[in-house]
């Protein structure tokens, strides 16, 4: 269990590391070019690992709805935006605001799709996140 916990933490570290490296590439090129290289290099890497391990087309992938294939273009904008932001507001604020956006939109999507959820926990959680966004937004030393 402790091993899996370490792996989960490492996954988060790698999210941040990836955004920093892409942000550095964007400084030399452009945010969109950095997103292009991120996807191309990632594609080559995943293809290589999948060929080694096997099972890339396991399951029933063709049965997936057509819209599920649009994660790529969304991801391109996501990586480009992250690369652009990190040089401007720093790694921590970029990560914090992205997490806030993900959490609040996640609640909105859950509610729209009728996913069951605890209203009080949702309200309290979203309230805390909004408060945090209000705090981080201001200037001057607190």
């Amino acid at each position: 269990m402790i091993w899996f916990a370490a792996l989960a933490i490492l996954a988060g570290v790698l999210v941040s590391l990836s955004r920093q490296i892409n942000g550095r590439l964007a400084l030399s090129t452009s945010a969109m070019e950095s997103s292009f290289w991120n996807h191309l290099v990632g594609l080559v890497f995943i293809t290589a690992v999948a060929l080694l391990v096997g099972g890339l087309f396991a399951g029933e992938p063709t049965a997936a709805p057509w819209w599920a294939y649009f994660g790529g273009p969304v991801g391109v904008v996501f990586v480009a935006a992250g690369s652009w932001l990190i040089a401007r507001i720093g790694a921590a604020q970029t990560a914090l605001l992205i997490i806030a956006g993900q959490m609040i939109s996640g609640v909105a999507i859950d509610i729209l799709m009728g996913a069951p959820g605890n209203l009080w926990a949702r309200t309290f959680g979203v309230g805390l996140i909004l408060a945090g966004m209000w705090v981080v937004r201001g200037g001057r030393r607190a």
Binding site: F78, A81, I99
Partner: peptide, 8 residues
């Protein structure tokens, strides 16, 4: 940044 989180 907030909108980028929504993309995620």
């Amino acid at each position: 940044a907030f909108g980028t989180g929504g993309l995620l």
